[in-house]
Design a protein around this nucleic acid. Structure first.
Lengths: 256, 256
DNA sequence: AAAATAAATTGAAAGCAAATGAAAGCTGTG
DNA sequence: CACAGCTTTCATTTGCTTTCAATTTATTTT
């Protein structure tokens, strides 16, 4: 019996060889339920290792990626798109910005395809990938060490890179947020990099769906006071909303 | 029976080849109703991959510039895979290597999924993406400025990054190669970065299909003498082969 | 050339089976 | 105990079909 990692590994191999796989076939082959296979395929899809299709998956290529219609694999996806649109609307042409890594910021990247003369620095592999389609955007990448789990780069090298530039804005997606502690995350090196990002940018835009409120990670990125703009959905608790506004933070809510 | 993504993929291919397709023809060909085909064409029209017309569809300008998709089945690609397999076999576990950007090196990356304890530095976005699937590989990225045409990063920052490390090998895919001039390319900043790569690596492996021989770019990366290993196919001209061997270069040919 | 008629193509709606995501429950491991 | 990995269950969604009225295109008639 294979474990999860091995099974997914084999699935990637299979797709590479045969161009396509089916959920039912894989379930039988590996002796697990179709639900497990579907979870596998969705996870691999999120990492860009294959493209999900109804009933299975096909090999990943530029075209197949674009043909994917089912983009709502996590239940927050619709919210993410709306958040991303709002963030994108805050960003003008002719600016230079930093885009943090993460699925929310990836969505922001996708919303920037119409922008012109924009310079975007990012540490997210998927973010950079999404920006390839944006003709008017010059893409800079921090580089560094790749954390596969989040498709992000981190490390002292990435931080050094940031110190050499200055940006108009930073768009930060968060893992955890609370009024008293601020923005937090679990992975220390990424927190360190995010701190550098904050230093390198004139304005800090934090974007998060409301489920992250009062979730606290171990490592603090920035305190609440340092946030300039917060973009979230209407699920934000009223008291937190008030506190933030009182603290002088520009809070934007998506309509949903 | 093809699924939706595959069918649409094929339709795009068809339109690319024949300039125009008809609803009724497609319905018969794929064994689905005309309604389904119409939905396909409309969806593809919305994505700008073709232009809808009464009774069918015609190619769009956007399609023509993205068309290289039959890749998987074309002979060129087969050669690349074989080259990549050979290169991968030259690389052991527990090593640290640099992978240049490019489609050939991307293929090499895909062949490294079974390697363990491998450290790979790259400046190719697609190469990094391919290595996400390789659990035993630690991925480092140069970062820098993204050249979308080749999905590669370049710039002084990328070069600085390289100077801080030392690697066992460099795998270099080439645009142009000749015995007298050496390895060349067209884009200066990339040549500069490649030169740094050569400096940072103990061994230089050059991989190229034989069509690149006697093609010369404007900017030289390295002279022939600095190459340690050359991996290519049997299309290499006999005289060049001899000259290279005589120069002490380890030449590997794939069997095809 | 314009009008009338026939033929082909279309979008919208309704129905069905397979596939799906979400939630809750089971099981062995650290 | 928690928890990661898996399964079962179930309401919902997707992909496809057939049907039909409306629209577009082709052909004939005036």
């Amino acid at each position: 019996m294979l474990n999860t990692i091995e099974r997914r590994h084999e699935i990637v191999q299979l797709v590479g060889q045969t161009e396509r796989v089916e959920v039912s076939e894989l379930a039988e082959q590996f002796g697990v339920s179709t639900v497990t296979i579907r979870n596998d395929l969705n996870a691999l899809h999120d990492k860009g290792l294959l493209v999900r299709s109804h009933g299975g998956a096909v090999a990943s290529s530029r075209l197949t990626k674009e043909l994917t219609i089912t983009e709502k694999h996590d239940h927050h996806h619709q919210v993410k798109v709306e958040l991303a649109k709002l963030v994108a609307s805050l960003i003008g042409n002719n600016e230079s910005i930093i885009l943090d890594s993460g699925t929310t910021t990836e969505e922001v990247a996708k919303q920037l395809t119409e922008h012109q003369q924009l310079v975007v620095m990012t540490n997210g592999l998927n973010v950079a990938q999404a920006l390839v389609a944006a003709d008017g955007v010059e893409v800079l990448m921090t580089g560094g060490s790749l954390r596969k789990k989040s498709l992000s780069f981190y490390g002292s090298h990435a931080e050094d890179q940031l110190k050499q530039y200055h940006f108009d804005r930073l768009v930060l997606g968060v893992d955890g947020f609370s009024v008293d502690v601020g923005v937090t995350t679990h992975f220390e090196p990424e927190a360190a990099l995010n701190r550098e990002m904050c230093k390198a940018a004139k304005q800090v835009i934090v974007v998060t769906d409301s489920s992250k409120f009062d979730r606290k990670g171990v490592h603090r990125i920035i305190a609440c006071e340092e946030i300039d703009v917060l973009v979230t959905d209407s699920g934000i608790p009223a008291d937190i909303h008030q506190q933030l506004v009182a603290a002088g933070i520009e809070v934007h809510l998506i309509t949903s």
